[in-house]
């Protein structure tokens, strides 16, 4: 089949809401865009293990410790599902990690903010996972089959994450004066970065328009951001915590008007100038390098094993 015909077939499938599968023909740009988005998503899950992992040994109760461990484990798992989805596009995980280390691939800017108190752990679950879920629910309908299937699985598993976070924040908002202060402080610091997680506004997001055409992305950044805000503001009100946005205003249609996001800060962090960018990347590189001899040993052992199998 010639390429024009292949492309026509591709668009027909997109049109008909059919999934594109790994062995199907796809435009090179589509493939590139997918790799960029899925790997960024995978790296985010994995880098996200660091700020939370930082608190496992300090979790204030055995129950809290168990839940946090289980949650971080899920995140590692989600990273894996996503790497696998990305690998079906013909790029190895090794290459993806290399791109991360060379800063050719990005991860969610939210993880470049420090997680400073136990209330932050609550806020991460409530706001960061909350924002991620809004995005992921939408992505279940993405046009690439393996990505869509990974999203379905992830959404199913993530449903407890946000509850875990909200439970912590609730406990603290209803706790001692000091706890309440920590909860408000966490919200103050993490509110705006959570809104930035949805990416630039639609008018400043050329990638996103393309991705929408291909149905890689299903809903626009601004729409998803608005959905998150409308869902989250009442949750804060129930706790008596105040959203750090003086311009926030409930409108007649039930949605919230909100203040201007500091886009300069967003672009700074994306370009590497956030509070924890270097720390996060250094940590990942260090762990990767320290594990090199283990992987080499495992490769050597695996080779001798498969020789045995063939000989038998």
């Amino acid at each position: 089949m010639d390429e024009a015909k292949q492309e026509e077939l591709f668009w027909k499938k997109i049109e008909a809401e059919e999934k594109i599968e790994p062995k199907d023909w796809m435009p090179e740009d589509y493939r590139k865009n997918l790799i960029r988005q899925i790997s960024q998503h995978a790296h985010s899950e994995v880098i996200g293990m660091q700020p939370e992992g930082n608190w496992i040994t300090r979790a204030p109760s055995l129950r809290a410790k168990k839940v946090l461990l289980a949650k971080i484990q899920d995140e590692a798992g989600h990273g894996l599902y996503l790497y696998s989805a990305c690998e079906t596009l013909g790029v190895s995980r090794d290459t993806l990690i290399e791109q991360l280390h060379q800063q050719k691939a990005k991860y969610s800017s939210i993880f470049n903010y420090p997680v400073l108190s136990w209330a932050d752990i609550g806020a991460v679950g409530w706001l960061v996972d909350g924002a991620a879920i809004v995005n992921q629910v939408s992505l279940q309908r993405t046009s690439y089959g393996p990505y869509s299937r990974a999203m379905v699985r992830i959404c199913k598993e993530e449903s407890f994450h946000q509850r875990q976070g909200y439970e912590i924040i609730t406990q603290m908002a209803n706790g001692t004066a000091e706890q309440r202060e920590m909860a408000q402080d966490a919200l103050n610091r993490l509110w705006w970065p959570s809104l930035m997680m949805f990416g630039p506004t639609d008018k400043d997001s050329p990638n996103s328009a393309k991705a929408m055409k291909w149905k890689i992305k299903r809903e626009s950044n601004d729409l998803l951001r608005q959905r998150f805000i409308d869902k989250t503001v009442p949750q804060a009100e129930i706790l008596g915590l105040s959203i750090p946005d003086p311009d926030l205003e409930l409108q007649a249609d039930g949605s919230y008007k909100f203040g201007e996001i500091n886009w300069q800060e967003f672009y700074d962090v994306v370009q590497g100038n956030g509070p924890c960018n270097k720390q996060r990347l250094d940590h990942h590189i260090k762990a990767h390098n320290e594990g090199a001899w283990v992987r080499e040993a495992a490769i050597a052992y695996g080779m001798s094993k498969s020789k045995e199998t063939i000989a038998a």
Binding site: S84, E87, S92, R93, D94, T95, I97, A292, R295, E296, A298, I299, G302, M303, S306
Partner: peptide
């Protein structure tokens, strides 16, 4: 596996 290019180990 005969060709281990990816040092993350082969896929299963």
């Amino acid at each position: 596996m005969s060709e281990v290019k990816d040092n993350q180990g082969p896929l299963w």
